[in-house]
Amino acid sequence: MSSIKAHFTLLDHTADMGIKVTAPTLGALFENAGRALMEVMIRKRPAGKTSLCRVTVSGDDLPDLMVRWLGEILYLFEGEGRVVMDIDVDAVIETGLDATLHTVPFNPKRHEVATEIKAVTYHQIEVARNRDGWQATVIFDL
């Protein structure tokens, strides 16, 4: 499968980089944030046969859940060399989510890496309702 593009905007931060993500539902917000993280990290993710990986993440509240969720996707890349091509959030509540990740093994010859993200930070983290649904702001440490 080829990677699905996320709708997000990049936020300026002197040392690091942030994203602002919006979506009509909470599940779509978490999906979009995960896709945005991958797009910031890896510019080209060519189509390939994916394997499925199911993850369960828990948090104290929605902002904490967002940091832990994106941290999970970052770890899959950094620790296990898996590139996430797409995401289905199967269920989400304020303190936890279940998701299915479609991944391929990282191949430096095929995947063009754009930015090294060291971590997903709690700095100015925000997950909130807006008029049209949901929005989140997350800052990455580069």
Binding site: D60, D61, P63, D64, V67, R68, G71, Y75, E78, G79, K118, A119, V120, T121, Y122, H123, Q124, I125, D141
Partner: peptide, 29 residues
């Protein structure tokens, strides 16, 4: 090093959140 910082920030975030410290953090980071 990134993972060690991340692991302990999450643990401390949780402990502060549950009242491990008797003050409000101006920034969760």
């Amino acid at each position: 090093g990134h993972q060690i910082c991340d692991d302990f920030l999450k643990e401390m975030s949780r402990s502060a959140f549950k009242g491990g410290l008797s003050f409000e953090l101006p920034d969760r980071q």
